[in-house]
Structures are given as C-alpha cells and as structure tokens.
C-alpha cells in the first residue's frame, strides 16, 4: 500500500514534468473550447434539437475527446516507453507487483484527465455561462466509467506492440478516425446514414452518447446499451491488461 501511494505520487510529479502530456491533458480541451466558441458562439448548432447552445453541446463531446486521447495516447506511450527504456526492467528486480505499477498509472491519468475536464467545465461556466447538467455527480460518474474503460485499450496496446514508436503510430491511427466518427468532434446527426452505421462499431461513440445524455439530464437507464458496452470494455480491458503485462 505504501509503495502504491509513493508510486502514484511519483508518477503524478513525472506527469506534470512532461510538458506535452500535461498540455494535452490539462489545457488542450480548454484550447479547443476557446477555438470552437469563437467560431460558433453559444447559439444552438445546426442540426441540434432543443434549446442547448453550441457550448453546452461541445462540453460533453470534448470530455469524450479527452478520454479518447489520454486513454489511447498517455497510457500507451508511458507504458511502452517505460518498457522500451528498461524502466520496468529495473522495477522487476524489486518486490513491487505489476498491479501496483499499473494502478499508479491509472490513478494518475484518471485524476489528471479529470482535472482537465474540471478546467473545461469551469471555463464553460465562467466564460460562456454554460448551464451545468442537472446532476453533475451523474456526469462525473459517466466520466469515471468512460475513462477507466478506455485506459484498458492503452494498456493492451502497450502490452501487445513491440516498441514505443509502433505503439504511438497504432494509437494515432486508431485515435483520429475515432475522434471524427464518434461524434466527439462534430455531431453524428450531421453524418450520412451509412457513416452513422459505421460509428456504431467505434467504442468512443458510446462515450459520446452516454456523456451527452447525462449532460442533458437523462437518467442512466436511458443509456443501457452505452453503459453495457463500456462495462464490458472495462472488465475485458482490466482482465487482458493484467494477463499480457510484460516487464520487458
């Protein structure tokens, strides 16, 4: 337990010392918000129904985007680099368990990504007078489920791919279509019907659906399919990552 706390604290400090990781997790969603808000203003976007302004719709979408980015990039790159550089090899000579190494990583990325989302929310409220969802706790719960189920993908990629470089390339190749097709970057309602069918195969789509719904104040019961997909991803991710973990 002591080693888990020390390791989590250490990884958190290392995370913040890495400018690129810190920027993409903490500041990138905010920058995206500022850019899009400048383009659209907080008026209802084309194709949307109801009275939500553009920013109200953007916040859950950007939250999904950040989850996709950190799940695929931050976790994958850290673990793959640690293995390639022999950092895991050094840890292997000590009594520390793989589970501790992985849990520390999950805790740090989870908290840092959460901070990024909170910064995004705060900016939305302060700058654009976004109305918070009816039940913010429910929305944060949606964030927790979505992000934890996405970290599994990162661990699996890092475990399967031979080098940090290939891990990065594969993560990018998976990430970009996901960002575009899941509805995180723009609404799926605007896509042709055929493309909308493809989006059903993309894990991030379920994150976008769930977070949009929770943000709009819908109950979890209205999103059983999204929740089921994410829970299966979470369990499968945890099981597979623990099985395929390699020190070197």
């Amino acid at each position: 337990m002591k080693s888990l706390l020390k390791m989590t604290w250490m990884e958190a400090k290392l995370f913040l010392r890495e400018p690129a990781a810190a920027f993409f997790t903490l500041a990138f969603p905010l920058v995206m918000l500022l850019i899009f808000a400048t383009i659209y203003g907080n008026t209802p976007p084309p194709g949307s129904t109801g009275s939500q302004g553009a920013i109200d719709a953007l916040i859950p979408a950007f939250t999904a985007m950040v989850i996709g980015i950190t799940g695929l990039m931050a976790v994958t790159m850290t673990m793959a680099t640690y293995r390639e550089n022999g950092i895991l090899r050094r840890l292997r000579t000590t009594p520390v368990k793989p589970l501790v190494v992985m849990a520390a990583q999950v805790a740090v990325v989870f908290v840092m990504t959460g901070l990024g989302v909170l910064i995004l929310l705060a900016a939305g409220v302060l700058l654009y007078h976004v109305r918070l969802p009816g039940n913010p706790i429910s929305f944060l719960g949606g964030y927790a489920l979505s992000s934890l189920s996405f970290f599994g993908i990162g661990f699996i990629l890092a475990g399967v791919l031979p080098t940090a470089r290939t891990a990065q390339v594969v993560a990018m190749v998976l990430l970009y279509p996901m960002l575009i097709l899941s509805g995180a970057a723009w609404p799926r309602e605007l896509m042709p019907a055929a493309v909308q069918k493809v989006t059903a195969c993309i894990p991030l789509t379920y994150v976008v659906n769930l977070l949009r719904g929770l943000w709009a104040g819908e109950p979890w019961g209205a999103h059983l399919l999204d929740v089921a997909v994410l829970v299966v991803m979470l369990l499968a991710g945890a099981f597979i990552s623990a099985r395929i973990f390699r020190w070197e």
Binding site: K6, M10, Y82, G86, R89, R90, T93, P95
Partner: peptide, 27 residues
Amino acid sequence: GMQLQQSNLPDRMKVWEALDLYASFYP
C-alpha cells in the same frame, strides 16, 4: 540487490525521489 546491464529510471526522476520510491518497495 540487483544492478542490471540495461535498465533505466524515468528521465525526470530525481536522485532522492528514486531512492525514496524504491525504498518503499522493501519490507
């Protein structure tokens, strides 16, 4: 105690931090 031919610590980890962290692994 083991010193390996090819192993590393994270680039930005400081000397005292490495010792403090690794000390927490042992009973």
